[in-house]
Amino acid sequence: MTSSSRNPILITASRLLAPFIQLFALYVIFHGHFGPGGGFQGGAMLAASILMLRLSVGAERSELKFRKSWGTPVGALGALIFAGTGLLTLLLGGRFLEYHYLPFPDLSRADLHSAGILLIEVGVSLAVMAVLVAIYDDIMEGPGGN
């Protein structure tokens, strides 16, 4: 399997579409409180946009968006944001993931919970995106591959 296509229509269309898909994915992540959406869906959409670039413009040029070596570190960073939010509330006197102990001033209890949910969604989306892209990269780039 060739890793990049030579078709200019595919390359142009996918390069034109990818930023809009990523923008919509960010909207899905940050609008997850008010409509359908959230970290899992937004992370999967980000991964789908990067996979589209990997398939169309080739691995070398799509590495400008997401490097192959970033998979495991970004995934670990996402899980660390999640666990770090819980540990932060633990250090500030609450229980694990008890968001109204978060150190944001001038917010009511319900708004603090909303902010904590947002932090967690960001962590989840980073982890899901990195892991899905990493699985694709591992399948394409293992030893003895093309």
Binding site: P36, Q41, A44, M45, A47, A48, L55, Y136
Partner: peptide, 18 residues
């Protein structure tokens, strides 16, 4: 709605590509 969204993105997009 949330589950349908996830299934449409993950099941039809990423699983098919993999």
């Amino acid at each position: 709605v949330d589950v349908a969204f996830t299934e449409a993105v993950v099941g039809a997009g990423i699983t098919g590509v993999l």
